[in-house]
């Protein structure tokens, strides 16, 4: 440990003095308890995932007998090979990536533009624009009218049925608006004096200063689109257009059959637990690998707009 002075710099030649803030006994106890509780929370959160990972490498018989906990029993890679050999899985996986990228991109452009407009207090009709956005938070047309609308607009069986109706999340919009409002107005005034128009100001001044909120919004949108299945399920009529979440959901539903009393025996078939585990693991991996890198923006992003001076 390096000793430091109160200014944070050890003066040359000064004797090494260990100084640290005296912590009370109560605080130390608190720290230990806190660490224990948080470790317990971590274990509780991590356990199901590790269990799933172990199942994905295990034999079906071992899973059914409940012998798989943290370590795979009957280790094998056959299930991974089987699932990965299914072309529909990869096709749907590719769809998920495409839908997520396109939808996030469009959602970001539209949300940013809308939020920026709303953050300008002098815009005429601002109250109306906020009103129609907030209105949709509380009221919507319902399932069938939405379906009829999307159908009549000719969006069914295309990516736009997923992208357009979900392009602006009002919650994200309001968070972003609050962030833009917190930027100092003087910066924009200076830019205006220097001859930038509105678009120039947004592009060259505001957006470079808003990387934290942009990263957060990308994450919010991307995770939402990655996980979403209902729009695709509703508006797509073809296996080859489904995202992998619909594939996964159907697979898991296949494992809970057997209660279908009057079917001719076929719906009672079950998809093996290890196939489910492998599919879930493969679906979660991308989000899992991106998350740690955006996580710091995520934390700061959640606080955005929470305190306004």
């Amino acid at each position: 440990m390096v000793a430091v002075s109160e200014t944070g710099v050890a003066p040359v030649g000064a004797p090494v003095v260990r100084r640290r803030i005296q912590t009370s006994r109560g605080y130390r106890v608190f720290q230990v308890v806190n660490a224990l509780i948080l470790t317990a929370v971590m274990v509780i959160t991590l356990y199901p995932f590790i269990n799933l990972l172990a199942q994905s490498f295990s034999a079906q018989g071992a899973i059914a007998a409940g012998r798989v906990n943290l370590i795979p029993k009957g280790f094998n890679l056959t299930t991974y090979k089987t699932v990965m050999a299914d072309p529909t899985f990869w096709e749907n996986y590719r769809n998920t990536v495409v839908y997520t990228v396109v939808a996030t991109l469009i959602a970001m452009v539209l949300t940013t533009c809308y939020a920026y407009v709303l953050s300008k207090k002098n815009v005429k009709g601002r109250g109306f624009l906020i009103g129609i956005a907030v209105f949709t938070m509380f009221f919507n047309g319902g399932l069938i009218p939405n379906y009829v609308l999307v159908n009549d607009l000719g969006l069914r069986n295309s990516i736009w049925a997923i992208v357009l109706p979900n392009a602006i999340s009002v919650f994200n919009l309001l968070v972003m608006k609050a962030f833009f409002e917190s930027l100092p107005g003087e910066l924009e005034e200076a830019a205006m004096v220097d001859g930038l128009n509105t678009y120039g100001i947004l592009w060259r001044i505001v957006l470079p200063l808003s990387k934290a909120v942009l990263a957060t919004m990308v994450l919010f949108y991307a995770v939402t689109f990655w996980n979403s299945w209902f729009s695709a399920f509703l508006y797509m009529d073809n296996n080859s257009m489904f995202p992998v979440t619909v594939y996964l959901r159907n697979l898991i539903a296949g494992a809970t059959g057997g209660t279908d009393q009057s079917a001719s025996g076929d719906t009672a078939l079950q998809v093996a637990a290890n196939i489910q585990a492998v599919t879930i693991v493969l679906t979660v991996i991308p989000i899992l690998s991106i998350y740690p890198f955006i996580q710091r923006y995520f934390v700061s992003g959640v606080m955005l707009g929470a305190v306004k001076g």
Binding site: L143, I144, Y147, V148, N151, F233, L234, D237, N238, N239, F242, V246, Y247, R249, N250, I252, A253, G254, T267
Partner: peptide
């Protein structure tokens, strides 16, 4: 094509929408 997981839901929506 409708996934087995939610077959009745989609049937309900499509029939309800007259489509």
């Amino acid at each position: 094509t409708i996934p087995q997981s939610d077959y009745p839901t989609k049937v309900g929506v499509m029939v309800g929408a007259g489509d």
